[in-house]
């Protein structure tokens, strides 16, 4: 993926638009996400919140009001979001499930079933985010 000159360096609502572009051009996501349909609520308390719709291999940021009742909620401080997308993470902070256990800055909640049901695609989204973040 190639970040545009407008890609924000810090994780924010706008940053997820760049992630959506990366998802669109990622061959693996296009293959594994064809039948996926889920929502993530991404929150940085006191800073920003964004609803993310993943459907038919495409990630679409949406207004928070669009978030359906069944969704995965990832809430993290700004430091926590940096940990989630850290391309060179430290041990036991290297993965969303690891961070949910071990980082006080990251909370994963909402629907557990939605999380495990879509874990393969979510793991890929995070890998793409790490690659995007590594370019800054």
């Amino acid at each position: 993926m190639t970040p545009t000159h407008t890609t924000p360096t810090a994780i924010s609502e706008e940053w997820f638009t760049a992630l959506a572009e990366a998802v669109h051009s990622d061959r693996e996501t296009q293959v594994i996400g064809r039948y996926s349909d889920f929502w993530i609520g991404a929150v940085s308390p006191g800073n920003w919140q964004v609803a993310l719709s993943f459907r038919i291999s495409e990630l679409v940021p949406a207004p928070w009001e669009d978030l359906p009742r069944e969704h995965i909620l990832i809430s993290a401080t700004q430091a926590g979001w940096e940990q989630i997308f850290d391309p060179q993470p430290k041990p036991l902070h290297h993965d969303l499930l690891a961070l949910a256990k071990n980082s006080p800055d990251v909370t994963v909640s909402g629907s557990d079933v939605e999380l495990v049901r879509n874990l393969r695609v979510i793991a890929r989204l995070i890998d793409l985010g790490k690659a995007l973040h590594a370019q800054h």
Partner: peptide, 23 residues
């Protein structure tokens, strides 16, 4: 959860365990 009929364990179990590897 891997027994639920609405979870594809063929994909979710390997991704769950992959989380344990070094990047």
């Amino acid at each position: 959860w891997s027994l639920r009929p609405d979870v594809n364990a063929q994909q979710s179990v390997p991704t769950w365990t992959s989380s344990l590897m070094a990047p």
